[in-house]
Nucleic acid binder design. Sequence first.
DNA 1: TTGAAAGCGATACCAC
DNA 2: GTGGTATCGCTTTCAA
Lengths: 346, 346
Amino acid sequence: MHTTPRSAGQPTIVDVAARAGVSKSAVSRVLSGTGRYSDETRLRVEAAVVELGYVANAMARGLVSGRTQTIGMLVRDASSMLYTALHAVMERRASDLGYRLVTTTGVGRVEDERSALAALVSMRVDGLVVCSGLLPADQIAEFAPRIATVVAGRPERHPSLASVFCDEVEGGERIADVVADAGHRAAAVLEVPEDFAITQHARTAAMARRLRARGVEVIPVDARFSRAPASVAAEVVDLARAGRITAAMCPTDRMMLDVCTPLMQAGLRIPDDVSVTGFDGVFPLDSPWIGLTTLQQPIERIGSEAIDLLVARIDDPSLPVEHRALRGTVLHGRTVGPRAVPASRG
Amino acid sequence: MHTTPRSAGQPTIVDVAARAGVSKSAVSRVLSGTGRYSDETRLRVEAAVVELGYVANAMARGLVSGRTQTIGMLVRDASSMLYTALHAVMERRASDLGYRLVTTTGVGRVEDERSALAALVSMRVDGLVVCSGLLPADQIAEFAPRIATVVAGRPERHPSLASVFCDEVEGGERIADVVADAGHRAAAVLEVPEDFAITQHARTAAMARRLRARGVEVIPVDARFSRAPASVAAEVVDLARAGRITAAMCPTDRMMLDVCTPLMQAGLRIPDDVSVTGFDGVFPLDSPWIGLTTLQQPIERIGSEAIDLLVARIDDPSLPVEHRALRGTVLHGRTVGPRAVPASRG
DNA sequence: TTGAAAGCGATACCAC
DNA sequence: GTGGTATCGCTTTCAA
């Protein structure tokens, strides 16, 4: 049975070999640059490759070689600026180290995310970077014994999961200090419960703790995901109007926007009537013109150190598990001002 | 030679078969749900799968089945909000249609992007979505005869490339009308040359044309990528200070931020002294609190229609090539106001 | 230097 | 219902 180059579908190495008048083996050698071959052979193969528009089948290649030179990245929410920024940094670093990054995401539910992770595993990526505060550590850890894994961007301390993240506690305290320093005596803290949002819980808890330690009254506002942002915002507006708070602290910049809009629409000025803080400080919300007062995560470092750590673990799986907490920096914008005299608007 | 389950590496179907005491074939049948098998067999296999933590090798599977149930997405810049938003929409839609989305990006250069695209092809994804204004159409078209391809988010009219995008021309005109309607008589338009930024060129050209048609003087400002944003912004500041313009139109919201910051720092108020417009209107910059006046792209529709179109082409490659231009909507923010009297600041 | 042949892990068609 | 076997496209010995 001779090889008939099918008109449909991608050309295979056999097609290239036939076209170049050499064997599969020769083509393989030339393409990988390993082994010996004559200039003559090389030229013929290269020509055939171009003429046929041949692109090697990564599946077949990976199947035999056992390596894919690919890092799989699981992202929680493709629309989250934070993960997006991480993605960009990691792509660059991975590329520098000779790896390609492929990304998958769930579409919200834990179950989807698990299957997205499994998809990466099924592709036999050489390593896994998990960027999601949603998937429980145990479910990630399940794969860790067989594939090098690093969790990035969430304060993960699971004993078998290496991780790199922003020091949420320290960050929460720092930004709380900004509010306390401005003289506020009562602040709303939008709190997120621990389940399904490890990251955000850690920071808001730290904010509240710090405020109290500094003698600032904390009014907790339930900001769990299941609650509509508008409803959370309305609660903050009411508190501000009633003069019960002069500041509001949000778990993310995103939520901060959700709060600022209704405040503005209610005629409350920021920061004259209410001071507001965020968390993340990620492009494009780090623009001085927008002027958010927030805690900026060290995205650049988190991303590149996560990749470095991962590649190290790919090369040597026996490396000890490491947890790295990196410090963020306060971004001083225009949304925090000195304490206003409550209830004296107008 | 009997099968020895290697302690390292992922377990294979053979390991599962051995563990369950059945044949590879039986395992395959159970896992794919095709063919016939007894309840007994199913239970044994399912148990073995769980015990071993088996995840099927997608490469081996794809190699024989010829399909991967995967759509490859090439994104220009992982840090771009627009592509990010598209990504989220597409992920959801693809998932609904039974496809998984994997994403790759270049790291800036055309060459990288080509290789990122080739990586997708090498993975033998069933279809390709190209979201990048960088890669020349010809380089994309090269793969199109062999893999279903759709270009999303850029006004591509290449005869062999299906596409879905925002009607940049109409959008540019609409937003220009906002400026003209506000009474401005002279406006800076930040122009981007055509090469490597098809999208942005199209819209700025449309803005300028429309302004002129409405009797507004256009002062072109060179905003090509190679130029530092600060330098572009400085030019706008100078023009505004000199009273030569009362409005500035930017090709993207991102650039708009780059311009607004220096304007603010120069003591010029927006929109009192200068009106500014953007383009894209993508989360999170669509927040009313930020208040950008911009043209909002119909991201939701672009993304889901692109996936629909792609899947249709996967199923029937002979479908005629289609180009869909979708209309955006003006987002009326607070960055455009009535024409200020030039040079009368203070 | 080159080509033939043996798998990699899964599917699918085949008799049994 | 079940298990053997050819096969997908490629890399990798191993002879020639």
